[in-house]
Each structure stands twice: as C-alpha cells, then as structure tokens.
Amino acid sequence: MASPSPTGLLRRGEGMHSASFLSSWKRILLLRETSSLVMLFLVIIVFFSIAPLFLSKENVGVILEIIPELGIVALGITMLMIAGEFDLSVGSVFAFCPIMMALFMTWGMHPVLAVVAALFVGIALGALNGLVTLVFGIPSFITTLGSMLIWRGGVLLITGGWPPPFPTQMSTTILVGKIGILRASLFWFVVVTFLLWFILERTDFGNWMFATGGNQVAARAMGIDVRKVKLANFMLCAFLAGFAGIIQSFRLQTTLPSMGNGLEMEAIAATVIGGTSLGGGVGTLIGTVVGSFLIRIIDNGLIMARAPSYWFRVFIGIATILAVILNTFVRERAKKLRC
C-alpha cells in the first residue's frame, strides 16, 4: 500500500507555495477533480441533447434523491482509501444498520434511540474490520471481503428473508423530508461532504491521513499513530455506510435484506473516477462527489435516452478507466507545461 514518495503531501504543497509562478490554466489541469468534472459536464450535455427531458424539474429531482445515498457511502470509502485501506463491506453494512434499527424499534425502543443505536452498530462493525485488519496484519481487502459476506448473511439470518415491518409511527422528515424537488438527504450529503473536507484539508488529523496512506514508514517516523488513524477511518466509513442505509430505508419506508447489493463497487468506482488513488495517500472528496453524480447520472440518462440498460455497466467501466487515464496523462502533461 505504501508508495515511495508521499505524493499526498506533495499535492497539497503544490497548491500553496508554487501558486505564484503557475498559470491558472496549469493549476486547473493539475487538479485531480478536473477530468471527472469535464466528463460529468460532457455526459450531461450528451444526455440533454438526446433527451431534453433529462434536465426537466422532475428528472433532476429523481437524480438528486438517489445521489446522496451512494455519495455518502463513497465519501467514507474515499477517506479510508486516502488512509491506505479498503472496505468492501459497505454494501452489507448499508443493509445491516437499517434492519437493526427496525428491529430495535419492534423491541419497543424509542425511534431516535433506535437510529442512534443502529449507527453505533455500524461503528462497531467498522471497528471490527479495522481491528481484524490491523491486529492480524492482513490486507483490508480480504478482511472486508469476508465481512461483506458475513454481514449480508447476518441480515438474511436476522430477517429470515422477511424484513421487519418499517415502523410507521416515526417521522422521516429530518432525513428525507421534501422541499419542492429537493430532499433533506441532499442537505445531509452537503453537511457530510463539508465536515469531511474540513477534517481532511484543515486539521492535523487530515495531514496524518495523507501521510499514513502515502508512506506508512515515514508517517510512523514522524510520530503518527498510523493504527489509530486507520482504525478511526474504518469506523467512519462503516458509520457513513450505515447512515446512508438508514436514509434509504427512510426514503423507501421499508427495510429490505437486498439493500445495497453491489453498492461497494459503485462507491469504489465513484471514488476512483473522482481521482482518488487505490494506493492510498492521494485523493479528493470533491472528486468523489463528482464521481457519484456521474454514476447516477449515467444510470438515469440511459433510461431517459431509451437505451437498453445493459449499457450501464459498459459506460461505468469506460468512465472508470478513462478517468484514471486522463488523470495520469493530463497531470503528467501539465507538469511539463512551461508557464
């Protein structure tokens, strides 16, 4: 996982002290978010020109209501990946937490308490992922591949295939209430994005994360407790997956054992499209937000364009590879630009 140079620190340095002699054009090309943003605009333009209804009020509402659920999960994955680890179990946690919430409520727990308790279950699942990975020193890919199956099986075991009935006595306004075409979940998505951005870019902890993911040995030599940094991010990632799952169950007024099936792949694709490196130490949250938009928009746009849905996988595949190629190429080129 450790790469030879702490590129994350370099990237952050570039923006600060070399701004005076870089043209703004070069700086834009050097941003990791650029290629995904360009792709996003292009995709929107293409879909709009094929199907003008794509940008109708109703359809924008449809897109904005499904993006936060993927986006919040992908943000957690991004943080964890920057710290140099991986989580495949997010899709299962996404189903596990809402089911636990519904179960707590059928046991007579107060709704707010049940939501909080379910989120703590999420944090505990993340902590388990982290502890197993760090104590036994095995790749998180393996740990979370295992736990992905375990939690999903757990969901089916607990529910026996039949989900517990969604408690109707509870108000869902705070998480998914609607104002016009906008849902409260979009607001939460913005809040989470801002909070994580602040932690990552403006606090010591953010610096430790970049250092831990970029070069663990160097980070340790600097006195950073890399285990604590990683563990915290495992917990954060699972917490966000559970939170997003609860948002979805609130929106649909149901808890399904199949929720979040395949979500981990979409979340990882969103993260990678956004410009976060699989190797750790490099990444951006804004890019992940753009990546989440891109994935959900391609999904929706293909329907609006009346294209067979089979194309979805093909396009997401192309977008993922293209984003990484562009990121590599454009940045290499831009570095050589004389300004």
């Binding site: 449809v62 209501e65 499904i66 649909l252 199949s258």
Partner: peptide
Amino acid sequence: DLPAQLSQFKATLAQ
C-alpha cells in the same frame, strides 16, 4: 434490487 427499480420507475415518469 427494488430501490433501483423504484428510481427507474421515477425516471421513466419524468420521461
């Protein structure tokens, strides 16, 4: 994947 089916239904409505 019922959540996906539901959002596909909504996208279809917008169309």
